[in-house]
């Protein structure tokens, strides 16, 4: 096999990154994401611009892929995701009697794309659009565990929300390893003291992670003997599979 040409590989990774970002990125974000010095990235971007593959917004100096590459830029749209996922989220809420949330990664947060209330008609507030901390929620931890190396960039000091919040990077790395091994993440009072949740990945047709799906409730409802309750987990995994299949049917 021929030795890969490093600069082509790097340029390709920049195009992939910009195409999948869903919004224009600035130089600092890009160099952090691909783990290259700003000067190197700047040179690559200038070349891609002259080739017409990348555009730079004049007012903000942010970069995005050229409209000519729109067909290549097969990033997931949150509205498509919500449309495909909602029937299965409704069904999951009906089966489990629990609150259901779907989140996707946006910069350094897990942003809620769809939210189905706990089906008991109690007063609840729609949380679509709200950003959740990656290190303190089941949804965020699933996204983090499956993220590409170097993306997203977590702050050195992880914010503590409750006494259960994982606040060391080493603990978080161990948690990610466990999540990748088990296939699901558990949140046990780490963001709100009275909220327990399980989350699993939602993948696209190529097997890449596009979102995370969670059921939320009280500790007794979601966990048994400190781990994910089997029945809830079964329903959750099945629903995530249906969402993945529905995503694969999108144009």
């Amino acid at each position: 096999m021929t030795r890969p040409v490093q600069s082509v590989l790097r340029a390709a990774s920049l195009v992939t990154l910009l195409a999948g970002a869903g919004r224009p990125l600035d130089l600092v974000e890009i160099s952090a994401a691909v783990e290259l010095p700003k000067s190197t990235v700047h040179g690559l971007l200038a070349t891609l611009r002259s080739a017409g593959w990348v555009e730079q917004d004049r007012s903000t100096s942010r970069y995005r892929v050229s409209h000519r590459l729109d067909g290549l830029a097969r990033s997931v749209d949150p509205a498509d995701l919500r449309s495909a996922a909602t029937p299965w989220m409704d069904r999951l809420a009906a089966e489990t009697g629990l609150e259901v949330q779907l989140a996707w990664p946006d910069r350094d947060e897990a942003v809620i794309v769809q939210h189905v209330y706990r089906p008991d008609n109690s007063p609840q507030r729609l949380r679509v659009g709200e950003g959740l901390p990656l290190h303190a929620t089941a949804l965020g931890k699933v996204l983090l565990a499956h993220a590409r190396p170097g993306r997203p960039v977590l702050p050195d000091r992880l914010e503590t929300f409750t006494r259960f919040t994982l606040s060391s990077h080493d603990d978080l790395a161990a948690e990610s390893t466990r999540i990748l091994r088990d296939g699901y993440a558990v949140e046990s009072g780490e963001y709100f003291p009275d909220i327990t949740a399980i989350a699993v990945p939602v993948r696209d047709a190529l097997g890449d992670l596009v979102a995370a799906l969670a059921t939320l409730g009280s500790r007794d409802e979601v966990l048994e003997r400190g781990d994910a309750a089997k029945e809830v987990l079964t329903c959750l995994v099945r629903a995530a599979g249906f969402v993945s299949r529905a995503m694969a049917m999108l144009p």
Partner: peptide, 8 residues
């Protein structure tokens, strides 16, 4: 049997 799933 009616259950609220979302509200605005």
């Amino acid at each position: 049997l009616w259950r609220r799933a979302s509200s605005w």
